[in-house]
């Protein structure tokens, strides 16, 4: 078996008195879509934050492509997140002052890609996510479903190796949620990115290759492949 792209072992994390993760573990291979399922407060978002290097676990290790995120400096982890990871959250992730095209181009601009090239690539991703009509609009002027597709385009524009999606359809109706999930998983598969998909909705999890269940901070992986 080849080395996993991202692996977490023995993760423990508490916030004050509240225990969020207890000996949690997970592995993700290149190009795999894994759903992290669990009820509210089960610890699934904390697990995602640990995997993405946003939160440092109290104990345990998170290894991405052979490098342990837990022992990295903050600056190293920030660089890793910027260059190798993409993020899609439930809402509030687009910069309201920028147009949708500028929002998608933003990660490239931060990586010092010239404006013209950045916007050209951003435009291609908007097209891939079937949302070119909002290129010149600001996030406040578009629908929830369109905004999420713009957010997915922004997460994919740097061609990350892992997309972290935390309840990406949580604020959408069924039809728009399905469209976002179809486009997100298709685009991720086409570009070879793995996806960690945190959700409490089974219909959303059905877009994954397999699931990991988090209950009371513990992971349970039944290894039932698609």
């Amino acid at each position: 078996m080849s080395a996993p792209l991202l692996v977490a072992e023995g993760l423990h994390r508490s916030f004050g008195e509240t225990v969020a993760l207890v000996d949690a573990a997970l592995r993700i291979d290149e190009g795999e879509v894994v759903a992290v399922l669990g009820s509210s407060g089960s610890g699934k978002s904390t697990l995602l934050h640990c995997l993405a290097g946003i939160v440092r676990p109290d104990r345990g290790r998170v290894v991405f492509d052979g490098r342990d995120l837990v022992t990295m400096s903050d600056a190293q982890r920030s660089a890793l997140r910027r260059e190798q990871f993409g993020f899609v959250f439930q809402f509030g992730q687009l910069v309201p002052e920028l147009t949708c095209l500028e929002n998608v181009a933003l990660p490239l601009r931060l990586a010092r890609v010239p404006r013209r090239e950045a916007e050209q690539r951003a435009g291609q991703w908007l097209e891939r996510l079937e949302v070119t009509e909002v290129a010149d609009k600001r996030p406040g002027e578009v629908s929830g479903g369109q905004g999420q597709r713009v957010a997915v385009a922004r997460a994919l524009v740097t061609r990350p190796r892992v997309i972290f999606a935390d309840e990406p359809t949580g604020a959408l109706d069924s039809l728009n949620g399905e469209r976002v999930m179809r486009l997100l998983t298709e685009a991720a598969r086409d570009s070879g990115a793995a996806v960690v998909l945190v959700t409490h909705e089974a219909r959303v999890a059905a877009y994954s290759d397999r699931e990991v269940v988090v209950r009371d901070g513990r992971t349970r992986n039944l290894e039932v492949a698609a």
Binding site: A202, R203, A205, A206, Y207, D209, V213, R220, A226
Partner: peptide, 20 residues
């Protein structure tokens, strides 16, 4: 219940693929 959940999700994946 965990085993049942996995089985339900397996079928849901199949239907989701069929839908596509």
């Amino acid at each position: 219940l965990d085993v049942q959940r996995a089985e339900h999700l397996r079928l849901m994946r199949e239907l989701t693929r069929r839908k596509r």
